[in-house]
Design a protein around this nucleic acid. Structure first.
Length: 232
DNA sequence: AAAAGGGGTACCTTGCAGTG
DNA sequence: CACTGCAAGGTACCCCTTTT
């Protein structure tokens, strides 16, 4: 994971997606709830089958460079329903993702801002509909594969499916942002999704950060806190 | 099935101005 | 000083959609 993640450190925008066991509840362990992590740039796709990693502590499942990528506000992570993925990543692996970009927002902006401004809202649009709109192609989203057991060794269908998702996301972003830049007048790019949290959640996050820093100070350790508070 | 997030709505609290 | 009415802002809940 460390070696492969380093390939993405210099990218400005990457596609991001996760897979987990459809039947998993929050009471189940890490492997059931975060079975795979996928990244994609225009050049390459990375699949991390974390369910097969050895260990019990959250830190055994996230290599330093992957954490760096996810927590950097300068590397934009694009996806559909991406906030839910990031919540999972935070809850089970302690990764506080920044630079989150919801493709549904950009899709609505370029599709509706000139004809039906009322529809430029935060409602999610599924990935398949976005693919058909901008590429005229359906994405193979077979329920059988999607809801399969992602904790077991993967078969070829699963690998193909898992690679498709983040790659489709990065392609969609490039295409849609190109359309946005061609619009007259050009609307601004939607903000990173973590920046428009309700005030209540922002305060909770700040409290958690302070508590974390206090705990680290008490231990006298040099826990690498990538949180500078500015983005929040 | 389970979970999260956004939009909409009803309800409550708060602050302010006006009135007696 | 006490009371009333109104607008603004916050909160809680339901419904819908999306994800695996």
């Amino acid at each position: 994971m460390e070696d492969v993640a380093q390939y993405f450190l210099d990218d400005e925008v990457i596609g991001f997606d996760m897979e987990w066991k459809a039947s998993a509840t929050y009471a189940d362990g890490i492997r059931d709830n975060v079975s795979m992590i996928q990244l994609a740039s225009e050049k390459r796709v990375a699949l991390f089958h974390v369910a097969s990693f050895i260990g019990t502590d959250p830190k055994h499942f996230v290599a330093p460079s992957l954490r760096k990528i996810m927590e950097s506000p300068d590397i934009t992570k694009v996806g559909v329903s991406i906030k839910a993925d990031c919540t999972r990543l935070r809850k089970f692996l302690g990764v506080n993702t920044r630079g989150i970009f919801e493709l549904s927002h950009l899709h609505r902006l370029i599709k509706y801002s000139q004809s039906q401004p009322k529809l430029v809202n935060k409602r999610l649009v599924n990935l398949n509909d976005q693919m058909e709109e901008h590429f005229g192609l359906p994405l193979l989203k077979e329920t059988e594969v999607r809801c399969s057991d992602w904790t077991r060794p993967l078969n070829y269908d699963q690998v193909q499916y898992a690679a498709n998702d983040p790659y489709a996301c990065i392609c969609l972003f490039k295409t849609m942002d190109g359309k946005r830049q061609a619009m007259i007048p050009m609307p601004p790019r939607p903000a990173h999704a973590e920046l428009d949290l309700p005030i209540r959640l922002v305060e909770e996050a700040q409290k958690a950060t302070v508590a974390e820093e206090n705990a680290a100070a008490e231990l006298g350790g040099t826990a690498d806190s990538n949180v500078d508070g500015k983005a929040i």
